[in-house]
Design a binder for these strands. Structure first.
Length: 644
DNA sequence: GCCCAGTCACGAGT
DNA sequence: CACTCGTGACTGGG
C-alpha cells in the first residue's frame, strides 16, 4: 500500500478546495510555454566537491555522503583563513575597551577570490547556473543563518546606532561574493528548485535562488537578442489597489518616474524603457512572467513578505495618469491555468480570520488556554475530533522526578537585560550571545538555550520566547493517512518559535508502554546543520560549535493525557520543524522544556513536522521501545521508511 | 500599543 | 562607469 500524498485526499465531502501551498510533489503548469524542464536531474547525494559536506536535508545518515558519521566538523580546511574582500581594512577595527588579543589573526592567507568560490561555498559553477530543490533550500538556509548571526552581532553593538542595521543586505552580499547562490543564469518561466507557494522574507533571498535578480527593482528582464529584452519576473509592491479583485489577475505599475511604490510621489512621466519595455515585449511574445506577490502580513508585525505565485502572462498594457498626474504604464497580468494555489490561499485565509472558516469542528480546541485559538478541522472524513485529553501549556514533573539542580536567573534591573550586556547572567550562560533576534527569531541551534525567567527582575526582557505560549494561528486537521496533524494559517519564518512539547515529564523507566504521545529525548536524532555554514564562520566571528541537543538528564514527556498542540505534530524524515532544549530558572530551580522552531520559512497550510528519531538500538533489544516501528508516510525523497 | 509617513543608506545589474 | 531601482529598519506623531 503506497502512502497517499496530499493531492489524493479529494473527498466529496470536503468543504474547501484548498491544498497546502507547497504540495509534496511539486506540480508545474504543463502550459504551452517553452519553459525549461522543472528540475535539473542531478544525483541527490553528490558527488560533492572536496571539502563540502552536504548539510541539508539531513544527509548525514545517507550512505553516499563521504562525511564521517560522527559529529565532528568535516575536513573543511583552514576555516579561518578566508576573509571577505570588503573586510580587508579591518585592522583599523576599533574594538574599544576589549583587549582580548585572540582576534588579531595571524597572516590572513587569501588566495585569489575567484579561484576559491567553489571551495568555500561547496556549490559548483554548474550548480550556480542551474539549481534544484536541494540547492535552493541549502542556499536559503545558509543565507538565513548568516543574516540572523549578523543581526545578533548588530543588536549587541547598540553603541553606534543607526548605522548598518541591514543584516539582510550584509548577508546577501556575503553570499553573493562567496558564491552561495544558484540559478544565476537568468531565464523566463520555471526556476528549478523554486516552488509555487514558496515564501520569502527578504528581496535578497529571491535574488540568491534566481527567482528575481535585482536587489531592489520590481521588474527583472533578459536580453533574448540584440534588440529585444523580455521580462522574466515582477515583484508586486503589496499596495494592491484591486483588493477584492480576482487573485489570478495582477495589475502592475511600470517602473520609473521617481516616487515610491504607489507612485503618489511620482515626479515625472514614466518612459518606455528598461522594465517597462521588457513587459511590453513579453506581451507581444506571450512569454511567461513569474509573479511574486509582496504582501503586508499582519502576523509578521505588518512587515512585507513575498509569495511566489507562479507564471503569468501579460495580457494588456496601457498608459494612464497616475495619482500625481504624471504618465504611468499599467500591465494586466493573468495567471496561467493549472497551477497550485498560492496567493489565492492568502486571500482565503484573510476571510477565515474574519470568522468565515467553514467546516470547523471547534474554533478553539484549547478552550481559551492559549491566547490565540487553535482551530480543529476535518476535511477528509467523518471523525469529529481526536481522543479526549486535557489541554495544558505546561510541562509537569512527577514527584519522583529528580530535577533539583539549583539555578540562578539574572539580576538585571528592569529591561536592562540587553544584547551585548555581559553582566547579565542569563546572557553569559548563552555564551555571551543573546539567543534571539529582536523579533523573537532564534539565532542558532545549540545544545541548550537559556532564557530569563519569571523571577528575573528584567520584566520586559524578550529572552522568554518559549515561555509566552503560541503566537501563530494554528490548526489541527485530519490528514489522509497519518491521523491528526498540525499546520498554520500564518506564514512562519525560519527560526520562529512554534510551541513547546507540553505534558507530563517522567523518568525514562516510568513510561507506560504504548504511549503514542511520548517525546523521548534519548532517541537517536538525525543530525543536521542549521547555523552559519562551514567556511563562513570567520565572517560571523564565531567558532563552529555543536548544534546537537544536550539534555542534563534523560527526559520523556507524555502528552497522552495532558498536552498542548505539540502532541499533534507528525513525524517526517524531511521535517520543517526541529526541537531545541530550553531552560530557565524558577524559584531557584531549573526548569527544562523542549521547544519547536521552524527549520525554514513555512508557507501557510503546510503541515508542520519534526523528526521523531529512532529508539536506540540497545533499548530496542531490551524491549524498552515506547512503541514499535511505524510505517512512515512523510512522502519525502529522503524518507527512511519507518520511524519509532 | 498600533498604524502611518518620513528618513536613511544600501547592492546588483546594466 | 554612473545610474537606476525600492527596500527594511527605525523613529516620532496622532
Amino acid at each position: 500500500m503506497e502512502s497517499e500524498s496530499y493531492e489524493s485526499y479529494t473527498d466529496k465531502t470536503r468543504v474547501y478546495d484548498l491544498k497546502p501551498l507547497r504540495t509534496l510533489k511539486p506540480v508545474f503548469p504543463s502550459g504551452n510555454h517553452q519553459a525549461p524542464p522543472p528540475f535539473v536531474c542531478s544525483p541527490p547525494f553528490g558527488p560533492f566537491p572536496p571539502g563540502f559536506s552536504p548539510f541539508y536535508p539531513f544527509t548525514s545518515s545517507q550512505p553516499h555522503t563521504h562525511q564521517n558519521t560522527s559529529s565532528q566538523p568535516s575536513l573543511v580546511t583552514p576555516l579561518r583563513s578566508f576573509r571577505s574582500p570588503n573586510n580587508n581594512n579591518d585592522d583599523a577595527d576599533p574594538e574599544e575597551g576589549c583587549s582580548t588579543p585572540k582576534k588579531r589573526k595571524i597572516p590572513k592567507k587569501r588566495t585569489p577570490e575567484k579561484k576559491n568560490v567553489n571551495f568555500e561555498s561547496g556549490i559548483t559553477a554548474a550548480e550556480r547556473e542551474n539549481g534544484n530543490r536541494k540547492l535552493v533550500k541549502s542556499v536559503l538556509t545558509r543565507y538565513e543563518a548568516l543574516r540572523r548571526r549578523f543581526s545578533q552581532l548588530e543588536d549587541a553593538r547598540e553603541a553606534v546606532s543607526g548605522i548598518n542595521k541591514r543584516a539582510d543586505l550584509k548577508a546577501g552580499s556575503t553570499c553573493m561574493s562567496r558564491g552561495v547562490r544558484t540559478n544565476a543564469k537568468k531565464r523566463p518561466g520555471v526556476v528549478p528548485g523554486v516552488e509555487i507557494g514558496d515564501v520569502f522574507f527578504f528581496r535578497f533571498e529571491m535574488c540568491l535562488v534566481g527567482l528575481h535578480s535585482p536587489s531592489m527593482a520590481g521588474i527583472d528582464y533578459l536580453a533574448v537578442d540584440e534588440e529585444t529584452t523580455i521580462a522574466t519576473s515582477v515583484v508586486s509592491s503589496g499596495y494592491y489597489d484591486n483588493e477584492e479583485g480576482d487573485p489570478d489577475v495582477l495589475v502592475y505599475t511600470g517602473q520609473g518616474g521617481g516616487g515610491n511604490a504607489d507612485k503618489e510621489k511620482q515626479t515625472s512621466d514614466q518612459k518606455m524603457e528598461r522594465g517597462n519595455l521588457a513587459l511590453e515585449k513579453s506581451l507581444v511574445r506571450n512569454s511567461p512572467v513569474r509573479v511574486i506577490r509582496g504582501l503586508k502580513e499582519a502576523s509578521q508585525g505588518g512587515n512585507k513578505i513575498y509569495v511566489y505565485d507562479g507564471l503569468y502572462e501579460v495580457k494588456e498594457s496601457w498608459m494612464e495618469k497616475g495619482k500625481s498626474g504624471h504618465n504611468t504604464f499599467k500591465y494586466k497580468l493573468v495567471r496561467a491555468p493549472g497551477q497550485p494555489p498560492a496567493f489565492a490561499t492568502w486571500v482565503a485565509i484573510q476571510k477565515w480570520k474574519a470568522g468565515l472558516r467553514e467546516g470547523l469542528i471547534l474554533a478553539d480546541l484549547t478552550s481559551g488556554v492559549e491566547s490565540i485559538g487553535v482551530s480543529l478541522v476535518n476535511e477528509v472524513d467523518e471523525e469529529n475530533g481526536p481522543g479526549y485529553f486535557t489541554y495544558s501549556t505546561k510541562v509537569t514533573y512527577s514527584e519522583s522526578f529528580n530535577l533539583t539542580q539549583p539555578s540562578l536567573g539574572c539580576d538585571c534591573l528592569s529591561s536592562s537585560c540587553r544584547p551585548g550586556n555581559l553582566n547579565c547572567h542569563c546572557i553569559r550562560r548563552n555564551g555571551g550571545d543573546y539567543p534571539y533576534c529582536g523579533n523573537g527569531v532564534l539565532v542558532s541551534r545549540k545544545g541548550m538555550v537559556y532564557e530569563c525567567s519569571p523571577s528575573c527582575p528584567c520584566s520586559s526582557c524578550k529572552n522568554k520566547v518559549t515561555q509566552m505560549g503560541i503566537k501563530l494561528k494554528l490548526e489541527v486537521f485530519k490528514t489522509g493517512n497519518r491521523g491528526w496533524g498540525l499546520r498554520s494559517w500564518d506564514p512562519i519564518r525560519a527560526g520562529s518559535f512554534i510551541c513547546i512539547y507540553a505534558g507530563e515529564a517522567k523518568e525514562k523507566d516510568q513510561t507506560i508502554e504504548s504511549d503514542d504521545y511520548a517525546f523521548d529525548t534519548t532517541r537517536v536524532y538525525t543530525s543536521f546543520r542549521w547555523n552559519y555554514e562551514h567556511g563562513l564562520a570567520d565572517e560571523v566571528d564565531s567558532e563552529e560549535v555543536s548544534e546537537e541537543p544536550e539534555m542534563p538528564l534523560p527526559l520523556v514527556i507524555s502528552a497522552k493525557n495532558v498536552g498542548n498542540v505539540g502532541r499533534f505534530m507528525n513525524h517526517s524524515c524531511s521535517p520543517n520543524v526541529f526541537w531545541q532544549p530550553v531552560s530557565y530558572e524558577s524559584n531557584g530551580q531549573l526548569c527544562l522544556h523542549v521547544a519547536f522552531f521552524a527549520v525554514s520559512h513555512i508557507p501557510p497550510m503546510t503541515e508542520l513536522t519534526y523528526d521523531y528519531g529512532v529508539t536506540q538500538p540497545s533499548e530496542a533489544q531490551n524491549g524498552n521501545a515506547l512503541h514499535g516501528m511505524r510505517k512512515c508516510f512523510c512522502g519525502s525523497e529522503y524518507c527512511r521508511g519507518s520511524f519509532g
